[in-house]
């Protein structure tokens, strides 16, 4: 009986670990799909190679893939162990805070008449947002040594 319970507990933790890995892999795959739709869409729209009705569809596709990626990320988050959850949470908090700070700074500089849209357009802000998330991830991983 005890052996059976031990085996059951052991296999449950292995299942949790595998399930966590699968979910993490899924979220990485969906992140790549998002990247694979976002970059060509941005390129096509920037060079105005397609008509307006099709442009709108092309503009929406990366948003859909991003939404799917976020859903997969949330699912992966729910099966992560608590140390990894903390790392992800801190990465998001740091990423969000730095992005909010940058947007505030840009807004205030714009009021002063000092702004450079060539470096800080909407498209660039998406890039900075990702960059800040990875900064937060790196900092948090270092903090908890995982």
């Amino acid at each position: 009986m005890f052996t059976y319970l031990y085996e059951a507990k052991h296999s449950t933790s292995i299942f949790m670990e595998r399930s966590g890995k699968n979910e993490s892999q899924n979220s990485v795959i969906f992140a790549l799909i998002y990247g694979a739709t976002y970059l060509p869409a941005a390129w096509l729209l920037k060079h105005q190679m397609i008509g307006k009705p099709l442009s709108i569809i092309v503009a929406i596709i990366p948003i859909i893939t991003f939404a799917l990626f976020v859903l997969k990320l949330i699912k992966a988050f729910s099966v992560m162990d608590e140390v990894r959850q903390r790392v992800q949470l801190e990465a998001v908090v740091i990423g969000f805070s730095l992005t909010a700070m940058l947007i505030m700074l840009l807004f205030l500089l714009e009021l002063c008449g000092v702004s450079n849209p060539g470096w800080f357009g909407y498209g660039h802000l998406v890039g900075y947002c990702w960059l800040f998330y990875f900064v937060g991830w790196f900092v948090s991983k270092k903090k908890y040594d995982v």
């Binding site: 507990k9 052991h10 933790s13 162990d81 140390v83 990894r84 995982v146």
Partner: peptide, 11 residues
């Protein structure tokens, strides 16, 4: 493995 977390997490 026993407690269902990663080795790095346990460390």
């Amino acid at each position: 493995k026993h407690i269902g977390i990663s080795r790095q997490g346990l460390n």
